[in-house]
Amino acid sequence: MVAETNSNMISITLRVWRQAGPDAPGKFVDYPAANLSTHMSFLEMLDVVNDGLTLKGEEPIAFAHDCREGICGTCSCTINGKAHGPGHGVATCQIYMRAFRDGEVIVVEPFRARAFPLVKDLVVDRSAFDQIIQAGGFISVRTGAAPDANSIPVPKTDADLAMDAAACIGCGACVAACKNASAMLFVAAKVSQLGLLPQGQPERDSRVLAMVNTMDALGFGSCTNQYECSAACPKTISHDFIARLNRDYLAASVRSAFKPVSSAAGGSG
């Protein structure tokens, strides 16, 4: 990142994908934006452009955002061909105008994937991620049934690694950056977080099988081991977890094919 503290003013041209709705035709539209402070965040720049559009009686650019501090995972656009734009390990909301040059044309597009259908302008529907989690991204524990927290020691190295994986914010940048629109990094992160912890062992096999099958059914692509996902990830989640997911999936497939099942299984629900 550029190390500068003085506020400079820049002017840019914003080339934004505008699309009124899921089935409407879309196109790039240019908007000039002048006299922007370099301390301004990228989304604040969009706010300013939108205020201008509103006052001109035009519809502002719809874009997803919420916490504006890089943790909620709502913001999602591709800036100059990169998911979340020019930073490393940050979300769109953490991009500042100091990352751009005066006079630059900035191309802004929605995350594109069949599994993330477009809603409007830069907003896409990422509920596919929720469906993947619903397929098994949890530990089945009823409220109130938990043993004392310290009765389950977890080696610090495992807990730290689980935390690395758990840092995923569910933004979908991995899908957006992957040339195959694959959700492997997202799935891998959740499978690894729970698979690394002793609490996650009872459902480890069923979880990985169910989550991968759901991922496939939702129309995400597959992994070709290029690691664009982890390079674009705002939490720099490592593709090591994808290796782990592959291993877990293979092991679970083999185990579930040969492991005997109790004849009484599945009775009580």
Binding site: N80, G81, A113, S182, G221
Partner: peptide
């Protein structure tokens, strides 16, 4: 083929970060 189908509308601009 699946991977092509997974992104039907291509990006206008695509920047590769690190893929070899």
């Amino acid at each position: 083929l699946e991977n092509h189908a997974a992104r039907q509308i291509k990006y206008g601009v695509k920047h590769t970060i690190q893929a070899t």
